[in-house]
Design a protein around this nucleic acid. Sequence first.
DNA 1: CTCTTCTGCTTTTGTAAATTGCATGCCGAA
DNA 2: TTCGGCATGCAATTTACAAAAGCAGAAGAG
Lengths: 140, 140
Amino acid sequence: MQFTKAEEYGVLGVIYLAEQGDNRIIPLSEVAESQGVPEKFLAKIFQNLTKASIVRSHRGIKGGFSLGKNPVKVTAREVIEAIQGPYNLIRCIGDPASCVKHPTCPVRFIIELAERSLLEVFEKYTIADLIGWKQEQLAS
Amino acid sequence: MQFTKAEEYGVLGVIYLAEQGDNRIIPLSEVAESQGVPEKFLAKIFQNLTKASIVRSHRGIKGGFSLGKNPVKVTAREVIEAIQGPYNLIRCIGDPASCVKHPTCPVRFIIELAERSLLEVFEKYTIADLIGWKQEQLAS
DNA sequence: CTCTTCTGCTTTTGTAAATTGCATGCCGAA
DNA sequence: TTCGGCATGCAATTTACAAAAGCAGAAGAG
């Protein structure tokens, strides 16, 4: 079980945008370079974020991406699920039919609890919280 | 991020052994067939469980596997970590060197919290708890 | 001895993640 | 109105790892 790079890059990208402040428009190339991630990969991720209105895209010269929402109101869960789709630690939770043979499967029981507690964490912290934490680290 | 089949099969296998009671010795073929999982794959998983003393192996005719510990004292975390090694949702947590460029990486911050809350769940429930839950489901 | 079962190692297969490439469309600026 | 920079969308590739299969060997019971 591992956090994917797409999720990681996406969160980092949104944070970078938020840090520039004032809803500035930043070209993707700058975001990618600043975070040291492949631009084309980030492009795909940002398309998902655009669909979820977390960022806004601007074409043409001087184009790029700006924040679509107030970072205080965007939770980590929203960003992650915009990128990966709904969270499923195990297939049979998203698709109960595949688990129909084991209506009493104890693995599902514990995975459901684990998933819930994971989502609680992701829901508890906003992009603004993550930036705040980063500032604290820099200060200390 | 997904729970792996190895983890799932391992937990199911241990539960099956525990359900037979009295530390009976069960050949791997029976465990595999009862859970509908490939025997060779399960074999590798059980080797790890053996090293962690969660199960005990017995060779020769009438050989197989028996429980190595009281199911009341084996947590889901122990089983899972015996199979997969220490839990790392993200690479830079297990290997901080790979993250040295970003000492303030906010992703690490939230992933560490997520990981901790995940492990708390896995630590809270024992094999006996899972079996108990299964019985409840059957009863209702 | 010999048959059965685990053991250890190697190899293959399958699938999803991660990345790259390219043709296209849009937009602002000159 | 044209040009260049930038996003878009889809296709293709590469990489990585999970999942599974294979096989020779060791250990134990009868």
